[in-house]
Amino acid sequence: MDLAKHWRQRAARYRLEGQRNPTSGAVRFPPEPGETDWQPFALSGQGTVYSFTVVRQPPAGLAEEAPYILAMVKLAEGPMITAQLTDCDPEQITIDLPVEMVTRRLRDLGPDGLLVYGYKFRPQIS
């Protein structure tokens, strides 16, 4: 069931916690294990759409959500990440559209499996 894999990634997935190098000020996401000079760093969750596509032939486990939008999001702090866009339709999305992170259900691993939660992005609400 990959319990350990999902558990290990919870800070990054649930709240977009990356790492910051206190010397250089560099920010990275996803966080990488095994180095002590990078500190946990909470990313703001703000970003813009760098590119996107619509997935109509989904991998196993995502059939219920298809069609869905997969995007490369340029985060305000610099890193680029790949994530689903949610709460929107493809015709609403443009390059450079401001988006914000939300925590959503990523996968349902079956009646005896975990519910996996993590980040997606959506057009800003305000």
Binding site: E65, V102, R105
Partner: peptide, 9 residues
């Protein structure tokens, strides 16, 4: 609720 939403989200 959308397909990726529940009480927790």
């Amino acid at each position: 609720p959308g397909p990726d939403e529940d009480t927790i989200t």
